[in-house]
Design a protein around this nucleic acid. Structure first.
Length: 424
RNA sequence: GGAGAGGUGGCCGAGCGGCUGAAGGCCCCGCUCUCGAAAAGCGGUAUCCUGCCAAAAGCGGGAUCGUGGGUUCGAAUCCCACCCUCUCCGCCA
């Protein structure tokens, strides 16, 4: 969430940012209730001051054995008024709160202004799109031919948009997870964590999935629990309501989790294959950093994610999301897109974002510097490192050969018991 | 699921209706002592909002003792609900 001071002191800046994002806000309601809040609060604090003062007096009189009935009687009215004002204040505050909680982050100055994904500039392209002497097969055909993916049986078990990996396929998925975790922990210095896959409402609100995007989530019937759509949610909330010592920063975590998404509103999109599933695996990177360093940390986070693709020898490109396409909580986002030969397109395989203090304010994560007064909010970042199902899909499509075999990248072979290729 | 105990500041821990934002201790930070360090002594040390102020400092006001309600002139303290932790019993991967 945004700092309310920013809205009061720099409303035009925020309005422009919301416009660039294409988000409509009820500014009138905000201003009405903010003004009302202030009026009530002034009055309320004055009455509370009186009450505190008189209470003190009563205490002193009682101690010295005097009769305080007269002033106690007088305070009765004040007390009633205080209760009434507190109620009124609560109403205005919850209206303000509702508006602010539904308000997205302000994009960083370096974020290109644009309407939708067609306006996202390409930052760089790494590697050349894989070329074939024949029409490359889609990964679902390769996977089904090789007997390592079975979407029909997955549909019997759960329904559409669920994966079933078999044999070498299951092992390859696990190999990818292990390879990514090993890379990030051993070479990039992240600490591995394995968090809960179900979280409560407060946690889901902290990272920004709630209150606005409840329909995108799987909710447990009758309980206030949700399946996580990404490890970002539980991992960022590890330090919920904590004040960290500055010497601990940056804190960097990597986590493997399954991710669950309802994919509401994506009917008919990417219906085949591993691209858009209700359940998929992901290795996530999360950072808690000092504000001064967060944009540098975003670049290194991006590089950490890119390293996975480079080691796997997959061609990819990096784009910068424009103001109209950037996520709710993010101030800046890079997407990494991997080359998918069968569809002849680059597909998102990682999303790396700096949230600045947006999530830190919601989750109340601060840090304290020695010798300095007060605390400051940390900046949080996260990125996929990478989406595992999509990575496997990319490996199948890019590594396929005309005879139906798929070459396993060198870095994965130790994780596959030395296996060099998948044969149908 | 049944029975009990408990949630207080960075940490430990006292308080159980009024002079308590909270004793005492630890940690940490200054200073004294020392060639330096340790020890000892002295002092300081929560957060958020807000008013005065250009700002900082400073001074003033409000809030915060798991969360939310209630009782009361007044609540860390009493009552209710919820959340969490711990112990014992049962069940269970």
């Amino acid at each position: 969430m945004l700092e309310i001071k920013l809205l009061r002191e720099n409303l035009e800046l925020v309005k422009t940012a919301m416009q660039n994002r294409g988000t409509a806000i009820d500014w009138e309601a905000f201003q009405t209730h903010d003004a009302r809040r202030k009026t009530i609060l002034c009055e309320l604090e004055e009455l509370r001051r009186q009450r505190n003062h008189v209470s003190d007096q009563v205490a002193r009189m009682k101690r010295s054995g005097e009769n305080a009935d007269a002033i106690i009687e007088k305070m009765r009215d004040v007390s009633v008024t205080i209760k009434r004002l507190e109620k009124d204040l609560g109403v205005s505050e919850s209206v303000i709160d509702e508006i602010i909680m539904a308000m997205p982050n302000i994009p960083h100055d370096s974020v290109p202004v644009g309407r939708d994904e067609t306006d996202n500039p390409v930052i760089k392209t790494v590697g050349e799109p894989t070329t074939f002497t024949y029409d490359p097969l889609p990964h679902w055909t390769i996977g089904e031919n090789a007997g390592i993916l079975d979407f029909a049986r997955a549909a019997k078990i759960a329904g559409a948009r669920f994966p079933l990996y078999l044999g070498v396929g299951a092992r390859l998925e696990r190999a990818l997870i292990n390879f990514m975790l090993d890379l990030h922990t051993r070479e990039h210095g992240y600490q591995e964590v394995l968090p809960p896959f179900i979280v409560n409402r407060k946690t889901m609100t902290g990272t920004g999935q709630l209150p606005k995007f409840e329909e995108d989530l799987f909710k447990l019937e009758g309980l206030d629990y949700f399946l996580i759509p990404t490890a970002e949610v539980p991992v960022t909330n590890i330090h919920q309501a904590e004040t960290l010592d500055v010497s601990r920063l940056p804190i960097t975590y990597t986590a493997y989790t399954p991710c669950f998404r309802s994919e509401a509103g994506s009917y008919g999109k990417d219906t085949r294959g591993l691209i858009r599933q209700h359940q998929f695996n992901k290795v996530e990177l999360v950072k808690f950093v000092r504000p001064e360093t967060s944009y540098g940390e975003l670049e290194s986070l991006l590089d950490n994610a890119e390293t996975v693709l480079r080691r796997l020898e997959l061609p990819y490109r990096v784009i910068s999301l424009c103001t109209g396409d950037i996520g709710f909580s993010a101030a800046k986002t890079y997407d990494i897109e991997v080359w998918m030969p069968a569809q002849h397109v680059y597909r998102e395989i990682s999303s790396c974002s700096n949230f600045e203090d947006f999530q830190a304010r919601r989750t109340n994560i601060r840090f304290k510097e020695k010798g300095k007064k007060g605390t400051r909010l940390v900046h949080t970042l996260n990125g996929s490192g990478l989406a595992v199902g999509r990575t496997l899909a990319a490996l199948l499509e890019n590594g396929q050969r005309e005879d139906g075999t798929v070459i396993i990248p060198h870095v994965l072979r130790p994780y596959m018991g030395g296996m060099e290729k998948i044969a149908p």
